[in-house]
Design a protein around this nucleic acid. Structure first.
Lengths: 207, 207
DNA sequence: CAGGAACCCTATCATCGCTAGCTCAAGTTT
DNA sequence: AAACTTGAGCTAGCGATGATAGGGTTCCTG
């Protein structure tokens, strides 16, 4: 039974290699330049091997997106737990979110724009040796949950979920417009400050 | 001299036909299914004719994006001028923005996500018979200007430009996440209401 | 009415995502 | 230990894509 397990282990490792390599190439040259042939070359296998692990190219993109989402959720959590009071925590999470998007713009776009979402969740292979029994927790939901945690202490009786969605939208829009060249990256901190002020400082109303 | 002008007129008309048809097809089936061949078929010309008018497919996408941006700016302006006091105007503009994005999701994505931006401004053909002497005013700037106009009366001494950018980001993020299936479309009005409240109602602070 | 230029089509190229089918080495069975 | 079976990974190829080259054909110009 050992050799069979070894094969599965090797398969899982190559699965991870594909995802990691695709992610690197995409970040460096954009997804359009990540062709199945070039990706196969980089991992030193022939092109059809990719299709043993993934149903199609979109599934690879989806896998990269899921990985990124999980990392983002972890980053946000660390930022929140590392801060002091609630307003500071929200500011820290905001900064972490913007940093994450700015550090890997392609990955960020992959996660929330390019990836078709839930309908691409079917991979050709079950990456791990033994899949977890329960349904995998959606990394996207983890991100939103994390934002909600940061917002909840400041909600003051409002629907913290709705509030988290709005805050998330603002951060996401900021990241998207900045990366698309529609907003100047230099003034991102100012914009985040304005947003945080408006959300938390009663003296900063528009009216 | 009449025949020459007629040719130019016909060219301009076909130029518009290409853009309009591409826009229709993209909205109906997505840009991936707008191939140069199918587009050429629809306008009843052969494929290479497209390249007399546009440098490449991206230039067609860009033209559609510019058209959409101009329409969005006009829509926002109409919403603002049709409203009463300043807070109502801001709410009206917000609603108009969300409606525009929801009515033509592909067009909206084309405008602010897919279109590479300013670097694609070179078309193979100068569409009009005589190009305007001055540089064409950027439709994207018109949209942001329009939002700034709606926000300015409520700025209360703050930088209205920065405020407009933040508001724009929030609306844009809302539209993007909703269209991507990350947020439920039904509760968009609630989210807009929360956003407007937070921005204008002093009693609605988070803290 | 002849010369020339503009126009538009057929045919083709390189490359894309993806699949079919074969080879060959590994593991299993008698 | 020899024959069988399984399956992993390769070469080759398909249809379709964006983009280009080059030849006719038509219409304006002098």
């Amino acid at each position: 039974m050992t050799p069979r397990e070894r094969r599965l282990r090797e398969q899982a490792q190559r699965h991870r290699l594909i995802v990691a390599t695709a992610r690197e190439m995409a970040e460096a040259e954009g997804w359009d330049n990540v062709t199945t042939r070039r990706l196969a070359d980089r991992i030193e296998y022939s092109q059809p091997v990719l299709y043993q692990h993934f149903k199609n190219k979109d599934a690879i993109v989806h896998a990269v997106a899921q990985e990124g989402l999980a990392e983002l959720a972890g980053t946000l959590r660390a930022a929140r737990l590392g801060a002091g009071d609630a307003p500071e925590a929200l500011r820290a999470v905001a900064r972490a979110y913007a940093d994450f998007a700015a550090r890997g713009p392609v990955l960020y776009q992959t996660m929330l724009v390019l990836d078709p979402g839930a309908e691409a969740d079917a991979e050709a292979d079950e990456s791990g040796p033994a899949g977890e029994p329960g349904p995998a927790p959606h990394p996207l939901a983890a991100v939103l949950d994390e934002i909600e945690e940061a917002v909840r202490p400041l909600a003051a009786g409002r629907d913290s979920r709705l509030l988290a969605e709005v805050v998330w939208s603002a951060w996401h829009g900021l990241a998207g417009l900045t990366h698309g060249g529609r907003l100047a990256p230099q003034t991102t901190p100012e914009r985040l400050a304005v947003l945080a002020e408006v959300l938390t400082d009663p003296a900063a109303q528009l009216t």
